[in-house]
Structure formats: structure tokens, C-alpha cells
Amino acid sequence: MARGRTTLVVVLTSLVGAAAVACSGAPAPSSTLGPVPDDIADHLSVQVDQGRTQYAAREIVLAVTNDSDETMTLLSGALDADGFGPSHPTKENRTPALRPGTTRDVYVELGEAECAGFPAGPEEPVPDAAPSATITLARGEFDDLGPAADVVVAEVGDPGGHLARNHAVDCATAAVAAGASLAVDADIPVETRGGELTALVTLRIDPVDGGPGVTIDRIAGTTIMNNPDPDGEETGWTGSALDGQRSGSITLPVVPARCDAHAVGEDKRGTFLPVTASVDGVTQHVIYVPMPDSARADLFAFIADSCDWPE
């Protein structure tokens, strides 16, 4: 990633014990703890993480590790990363103790991706420089805290490539949306094809007047649904399976990808259609089209019936 860098300050207000003091009328206690040591940045490391449950909300974690001998409280976090606008916290009331040798988290929703100046295409961008973070800390924990201080961690790790992936998905989603609106139907009917129960998932494609041309090239299978008649080794839908898009909709015949109940019970992303599209002939990064809640319920019920689960 390259170009403008925007500092994103996430203020997580620390009012530990203040409400109880206000209600009792007692004077606020004053801490005897001193300020955060000047060299504390040398003993902190920050890493970006993101779980599957966080993908749809574009929430990331700034995992802060304390390798010093100081017990501190994590009050706020800030991310400076190429290609993203201002973000904001998703869990504002967390003020965890950051004891020696431990790791605690700040939760941040990424701001809007800045796509101008980044090449379009299926590849995820490579940043010119590692992101940095500003972490706000105070010595102590619970209701005994010293003064807060901002500490800059110059290089934030992202071994999972979460920022690059989010940026690529965001920009591809915006490029596709400029030419077409994609939506999954609210209902999923079921019929028997070749003696096998088959669900029919319909993706609607509504072109945007004056927008670029959008062509659906592939819809991949997921952890819980697949194409009953794949083309060769393809596990999703390609070629003639996507012909319906010319009339504004694609109906996908679907069978369960697996029948172990925990696969559905623990599903995080299996109901998002992974769509690869071209915009004015340029192939984009895969994007993910969610199902409405009613369609998700239909799909789960279909899998239960197809896999002959007990009532």
C-alpha cells in the first residue's frame, strides 16, 4: 500500500472507579504512581489480528504485548496505516491491565479504504512501509492509575496480511458496486434433482445506470455449500452456471459441502457468497456477498434435512 497515511486515534475512556466515588460523595483518590517510563516504547510490540467473526464488520485487533517490568493499563490505541481513512473503536469501555509479559487488545473498526492511486486487480497491495501505532497507557491498574501517556510503536506487525486483504476486498467491492448492485434473495427454495435435495440460491445483479460493465466470473463454494455438478475440479460455479446474469440473476444449485453438525454450528463465513467479478474487463479481488437472515435460516434448515440430522 502507498500514498496518504491517516492517523486513527481510538479513545477508550478510562473512568475506573470514578462512578462509585461520585455516587458516594467521597473525594477522588489521588494516585502516587508516576508517569509511564520514557523508554516504555522499547518494551512494547503491537500486532494486527482479525478473526473470522470480525471480517464482515471490518473489525481488527491491535494486540499489545508488554515486555517491560511495569504493570500498566491499556487506555487507547491508534493505527497509522497506508490506504485507510479514520476508524473508530468498537469496544469503548475496555481498559484491561497490561501486566509484564502479557498481551491485551484494542478493537478497531477500519475506516473507509482509500482506493485512488492503488492498482485495480485481484492482487492484494504490498505496503510501502509497516503501519505504526500510538498506544495510550497509564501505570498501575484498576482504580490506581498514574497519568496517561501516548507511546508510539514505530512498526506494527501484520503477519496474516489482514490490512492488505481488507483493503483489496474493500476496493473491489467499491469497484463492483459502481457498476452493479449484488444481493442474495431472501428465500431459498428446495427441490429434488437427480434424487438429491438441492437448494436454489439466487444472486440478483442490478446494473447501475451509467456505471462500468460488471461480469460475474466465478462464485466459489464455501465451508458449508457447494455445487452438486462442478465443472471439472472447480468446487464453485463458473462458465454456463453463470449464464443467467445476462437477465439479471444467477440461480445456484447448492448441496452441503459437509454434513458434520459442528461445521454449521460453528459457521462464521459459509453463508457469504465469494464472488469474483470483472469491472470493464479488469478482474477484481474476490468480494463477499452476505445472505439475508431469512436465507441463512433456509440454508441451515436445508442442510439439516439433506444430511438427515435428527430433529
Results as ranks from 00 to 15, higher is better:
I60L: 09
R58N: 11
I219D: 07
V184I: 14
V153I: 06
A178R: 08
V48G: 02
T235H: 14
C171D: 03
S68R: 08
Q50I: 01
E234M: 14
N226D: 14
V275M: 05
R139T: 13
L110T: 12
H162Q: 13
I205S: 00
I216Q: 02
T103L: 03
G265S: 06
G244W: 05
T95H: 08
I60T: 02
A56E: 13
L12M: 13
R193V: 13
E311D: 15
E196F: 04
I188E: 06
G239W: 12
A149R: 14
A41R: 05
E124R: 14
Y107F: 15
M72R: 03
G77A: 11
D267H: 04
D298M: 06
P89W: 01
A199M: 04
A63Q: 08
A2H: 12
L252G: 07
C115Q: 05
M291R: 08
A304N: 11
Y55H: 12
D80R: 10
G213W: 07
A301I: 12
R58I: 07
D305S: 10
L252F: 12
M1S: 10
N226T: 07
D42I: 03
A18M: 07
I219Y: 06
E112A: 15
E233M: 12
G101H: 11
L75D: 00
D82N: 07
V106G: 02
T271L: 08
E141R: 09
M72N: 04
P96H: 10
D187M: 13
N66C: 09
T32N: 14
V64Q: 02
T202C: 09
W309G: 10
E124Y: 05
K268H: 12
D144P: 01
V11H: 11
I303G: 08
R246E: 15
A130K: 02
V11A: 10
N227F: 09
V151F: 00
Y55M: 11
T223R: 04
M72T: 08
T134I: 09
V48T: 05
A120N: 09
T192L: 05
A177H: 07
G160D: 09
A174T: 12
E196R: 13
P27H: 07
P131E: 03
I224G: 02
G111T: 06
L110R: 07
E123C: 04
L75T: 08
R58W: 04
L197V: 10
V190L: 03
I135M: 00
D105N: 09
A81W: 01
M291I: 06
P207G: 05
V279I: 13
E123M: 09
E59I: 13
I287Q: 00
E59F: 11
A78L: 01
